[in-house]
C-alpha cells in the first residue's frame, strides 16, 4: 500500500506574512498577479473578544479528488503519495476542475488551470514543498499523513483549552484531505464546507453515462456499417425492377 503524504496547516500559528505565497510563485514561475495560494480572513466575536481566523485557499489534496476524476486531459493526476499534481503543459484550461472543486480552489485563467502543483520535483527528491520549507511561523508541515494527524491531535487538544471548538479539518472530508487544517473554530467560520462532497453525478457521468453514450454510438456505427451493403443492394434491385 502506498503511503499517504500531506500537509498540515496550523491556522492558529499563521502570521499572514505571505512568504509561502511568494516562494510558491518563484518555484512555479508565476507572474506577480497569479498565485496558487490565496488567503481568507474571518473575524469572529466582537471587540475586544475577537479572533482572526486565517486559512489558505489552496489545494486540499482530496483523497477522492473530483478534479482528477473530471479532468478530461489528464493534466490532473494523483501521485503515488496521494498528492494531487497538476501538469500545466497538459492542461487545456477547460475549467472543469474549477467548477467541480468543492473548495473552489483551481482558477481557470490564461487558458490553463492554476492550482497547487504540490512541488512534485522537490517532493520526489525527498524535500518539502516550498511553502512548507519557507514558512517562518512553523504553521505548515509536510509528511506522512498519519504522523501529521497524530501531531495535529496533540495540538488541537492544547488549543481546546482556549478554543473549545478547535478541531482538525480534513480527517474524513473527501475521503480524507491531504491538506489537514488545525482550526480554532467550526469550519464554516473559515468559509470551509462542513461536508464537502464530490457530487455523485460525477461518477455517474464519468463511469456510466459517458461509456454508455460511446457504446450506443458504437452500436449505431456497427449496425449501419453492417447493413449498408445489403440495404444499398436491395435498393438498387428495387430500382432496376422498375
Amino acid at each position: 500500500m502506498t503511503k499517504q503524504f500531506g500537509f498540515l496547516m496550523d491556522t492558529s500559528l499563521c502570521v499572514e506574512c505571505q512568504a509561502c505565497r511568494v516562494a510558491c510563485q518563484m518555484q512555479n514561475q508565476l507572474p506577480h498577479n497569479r498565485t496558487l495560494i490565496r488567503f481568507r480572513f474571518q473575524e469572529t466575536g466582537s471587540y475586544p473578544a475577537v479572533t482572526n481566523h486565517i486559512t489558505r485557499i489552496t489545494c486540499m489534496h482530496c483523497q477522492l479528488a473530483p478534479c482528477v476524476k473530471i479532468c478530461p486531459t489528464g493534466a490532473l493526476v494523483k501521485g503515488e503519495n496521494t498528492l494531487t499534481y497538476l501538469a500545466p503543459e497538459r492542461c487545456s484550461g477547460c475549467g472543469y476542475c474549477a467548477q467541480i472543486c468543492p473548495f473552489k480552489v483551481p482558477q481557470a485563467l490564461d487558458n490553463r488551470s492554476y492550482k497547487c502543483m504540490a512541488c512534485r520535483e522537490l517532493v520526489e527528491e525527498g524535500k518539502e514543498p516550498v511553502c512548507v520549507s519557507t514558512c517562518i511561523a512553523n504553521a505548515l508541515k509536510f509528511g506522512e499523513r498519519a504522523e501529521l494527524l497524530k501531531s495535529a491531535e496533540k495540538r488541537v487538544a492544547a488549543l481546546q483549552k482556549t478554543f473549545p471548538n478547535a478541531q482538525i479539518y480534513g480527517r474524513e472530508q473527501m475521503g480524507g484531505l491531504g491538506m489537514l487544517l488545525i482550526l480554532r473554530d467550526d469550519p464554516a467560520v473559515y468559509g470551509l464546507p462542513v461536508a464537502p462532497r464530490a457530487a455523485g453525478e460525477l461518477a455517474f457521468w464519468k463511469d456510466s453515462l459517458q461509456p454508455t453514450g460511446f457504446k450506443l454510438v458504437g452500436a449505431a456505427l456497427l449496425a449501419t456499417g453492417a447493413s449498408y451493403a445489403i440495404a444499398s443492394r436491395n435498393h438498387r434491385r428495387e430500382l432496376s425492377e422498375e
Partner: peptide, 11 residues
C-alpha cells in the same frame, strides 16, 4: 528557462 526560480522569471 523553466529552472529559474526568480520572481521575475516569466515577467
Amino acid at each position: 528557462d523553466p529552472s529559474c526560480e526568480l520572481s521575475i522569471a516569466s515577467e
